[in-house]
Amino acid sequence: MDALRVEGLTKYFGGVKVLEDISFEVPAGERLAIIGPNGAGKTTLLNLLNGQLEPTGGSIFFFEQDITRLPTHRRAHIGQARSFQIPSLFTKLTVLENTMLVMHGLERSRLDMVRTAGGYARVADRARSALEDFGLWDKRDEPVGRLAYGDQRRLEINLCMATGPKLLLLDEPTNGLTREEGVAIIDMINGRVGAEVTVLLVAHDMHLIFSVADRVMVLYDGSILACDVCERIRCDDRVREIYMGV
């Protein structure tokens, strides 16, 4: 079954065409990397898939369910999780508070006004074991803004994976990291994400993504230039010319 099926997706900002007539499928469990030069429309595509933006035209199906007009929070409840290009953790809140917000997001109890957030043994337990897993339990009371940038990024990506999503949408998870830190993030994704989880990953660094991606989609100027397995993308002349500047 396809985790995602996109048909004729189009997005205009005012009169400006940013994505035009994009169609593709992503089988469940696939790791698809999306690359393309700055302004190609990669983030816009993720915003459409996760509902931050409404498309001008076209449809999006998530496990055969039409989600084209579904609000973002509902998409989270049916199994989408995303990370943003710009770090989006709440820097003023502590590591534990950030983690609890993630853990509560998909629970009915998120609307509970009476019981204290820490009183939920189950949710709190999950927060604790997740943080122990990430090696950040000792820093639970630190405001996230005080963590090293690499740690913030690691926590954010880890939290994305922690709620057991079916589809991960990662917008440049290695953005702003050193080469080694970037490799560590990719290893983390490789190591922690179950085989049944579908991953869409935007990245600039081609070499980095070849180690994780099954297929690569090249976006250029709002259209899909190529979408194929890594080896063939690597050899594609147009891709080499436009994207890698060879």
Partner: peptide
């Protein structure tokens, strides 16, 4: 009590960044 409930914490999260909160499943 409300401020420290999951609801109150969620409200603070929304104050800090509503886009992230939507992506986490908060209405």
């Amino acid at each position: 009590r409300i401020a420290e409930s999951p609801f109150g914490r969620g409200l603070v999260g929304i104050r800090e960044g509503e886009n992230r909160m939507k992506a986490l499943g908060y209405d």
